[in-house]
């Protein structure tokens, strides 16, 4: 049995009368990609926001690395090993690619009171940034300004910034959005590579990619989970077919 790194139980989010997420339970294990699919408005992004600590859920518990993290701030969850990427790029366009990663890595070695030291000479964060760039294949463009990268590279940088904080769990919100075939392939290779040491939650609309890479798929409709199984089982699940895949 693989090690469970992140566990959400009975997560519910209500916005007034609307139930955006309804009693969702989910487990992320090391060495696996767990994909969450569903139509727009199914509550996937809300779920990812709750797991990463963007806001607290109305109900439910979250365990990170065996500890109760329900009331931890987003920053604390990140420091404890939870990295997330955003659907929209959240890179720092005026910084170099390297500095984007270095600044993220600095979160693991925060020393704001050492005001006289040059942050760019901080060894730990420089090393962590270089490792993250290496892993995500951006070393060649590390001196470029992030705003000048191609769309695919920006998405890679988004992931690299997650890796820079050396997380155990990765929550990836549509990392393939807007990518061409070649860029998608490169990203899938990267994800397959990252799978080894991490537990990955993948929210994605590209079904071919999801079925290619996921070890487990959870299907959400109107905030509820209607199925959670291996890709092969999901493919033949009649509920999923009527609700979402439309006979895919």
């Amino acid at each position: 049995m693989a090690e469970t790194l992140l566990k959400g139980s009975g997560i519910t989010q209500r916005w007034g009368g609307l139930v955006a997420v309804n009693k969702v339970s989910i487990e992320l294990e090391r060495g696996t990609v767990h994909a969450v699919i569903g139509t727009n408005g199914a509550g996937k992004s809300t779920l990812i926001n709750i797991l990463s600590g963007e806001f607290p859920p109305t109900e439910g518990q979250i365990q990170l690395l065996g500890k109760d993290a329900t009331h931890w701030s987003q920053a604390k969850r990140a420091r404890q090993g939870l990295g997330r990427s955003y659907q929209r790029n959240t890179i720092f366009p005026d910084f170099t690619v390297f500095e984007n990663c270095r600044l993220a890595a600095q979160a693991q070695v925060q020393r704001p009171w050492v005001w006289w030291n040059d942050a760019q000479k901080c060894k730990q964060s420089v090393e962590a940034a270089n490792r993250a760039l290496e892993l995500s294949g951006l070393t060649e463009v590390k001196e470029r300004f992030a705003g000048l990268l191609s769309h695919g590279q920006k998405r890679q940088l988004e992931i690299a910034m997650c890796l820079a904080i050396q997380p155990e769990v990765l929550l990836l919100d549509e990392p393939l959005a807007g990518m061409g075939a070649e860029e998608t392939d490169r990203m899938l290779k990267l994800l397959a590579n990252l799978k080894q040491g991490h537990a990955i939650l993948l929210v994605e609309h590209d079904m071919d990619a999801v079925f290619k890479i996921a070890d487990r798929i959870t299907v959400m409709v109107n905030g509820s989970v209607i199925a959670s199984d291996t890709p092969d089982q999901i493919r033949i699940n009649p509920d999923v077919q009527t609700a979402y895949l439309g006979g895919h």
Binding site: E54, A75, K76, R79, R84, Y86, A119
Partner: peptide, 26 residues
């Protein structure tokens, strides 16, 4: 101060505070 750890975090907050929190900065 602006080129130190502290100053770089301020610069990050200016551009995208949400990302700074997601990276682990309170």
């Amino acid at each position: 101060l602006l080129r130190s750890h502290f100053g770089r975090v301020l610069a990050g907050i200016r551009i995208n505070e949400q990302r700074m929190r997601a990276s682990g900065f309170s």
